[in-house]
Design a protein around this nucleic acid. Structure first.
Ligand SMILES: [Mn+2]
Ligand SMILES: [Mn+2]
Ligand SMILES: [Zn+2]
Ligand SMILES: [Zn+2]
Lengths: 136, 136
DNA sequence: CTAGAGTTTGGACTTTGTCTAATTGCGGCA
DNA sequence: TGCCGCAATTAGACAAAGTCCAAACTCTAG
């Protein structure tokens, strides 16, 4: 599926998000690239041409997208959160030097031997992160 | 193996760390509890009786311990790093509501189907985080 | 045209962590 | 004992990521 700016309004509506100019730009930054971006990178992308979206709106909007299930967050770096337009179950390869994240489809991965969850707890998700770096 | 304050100097020396009063207190905070603590929690523990260790020293020391392989860090919360006195290979159960981390021994877990690493890359580690919460 | 709800905004604020220059503590040695 | 020199510690300034808030803007229904 290809994403263009024109798709964005429908995509937002389908997630119960009122499409505004800023929200469309932010969604487009993520979905046109289909890459993992930090809030700062989104901010930069959205304001390349002329400054039209504030920091507050970028954070508000990313959190709204998160809450509505349009995107997910990836926590691998102690300094910043990455926002991920891919919401299918998947894991990550993380290059600790460059900071680049790559998806690993969850269907290919099998995890055995997990202990039973503590009484009265439900699983919210499993994150698998493979940290890699250039070979010495 | 039980850890007392008296063990700490030897433990530090065995990791090539010069044992000082502050370093012993910080190590003791982690190893006597064998729990995952944030820098802030370490700071609090170390200064319960009378204030004797500065914020700069807490951070300096945790980073030194990290670099010497005495402890490891766990990145699961977007707001803070947890420091882990358990350096054996293991994974984590993370209660997203309480923030509590529990260890899962790596020996019981088997992960199959990982894709080959990109050319010229080496694996630094695999982190598996099972996010849980109270059942609704 | 107007009212009100929803959205955006600048900037103050908070939290987590780093940096630096000054000070302190300590072992070795005269 | 007194002094030297280095390692360690410190206060506090600084930085980066993120939140909060009250004011302003936008859009639509009436
Ligand atoms: Mn070790
Ligand atoms: Mn943060
Ligand atoms: Zn991803
Ligand atoms: Zn652990």
């Amino acid at each position: 599926m290809r994403y263009s700016r024109d798709n964005m309004a429908g995509l937002l509506r389908s997630h119960d998000i009122n499409p505004t100019h800023q929200r469309i730009e932010i969604a487009y930054a993520l979905f046109s690239r289909m890459e993992h971006l930090s809030a700062d990178q989104v901010m930069t992308q959205v304001n390349v041409h002329h400054s039209e979206t504030s920091k507050a709106t970028v954070y508000n909007t990313l959190n709204l997208f998160l809450q509505k299930g349009l995107i997910r967050e990836v926590i691998v770096d102690p300094n910043k959160v990455f926002y991920d337009p891919n919401t299918r179950p998947h894991h990550h390869l993380y290059d600790v030097e460059s900071g680049r994240l790559t998806d690993i489809d969850a269907e290919e991965i099998h995890i055995n031997g997990l202990p039973p969850l503590p009484e009265g707890m439900t699983m919210e998700g499993i994150d698998l992160i493979v940290r890699i770096r250039k070979a010495a």
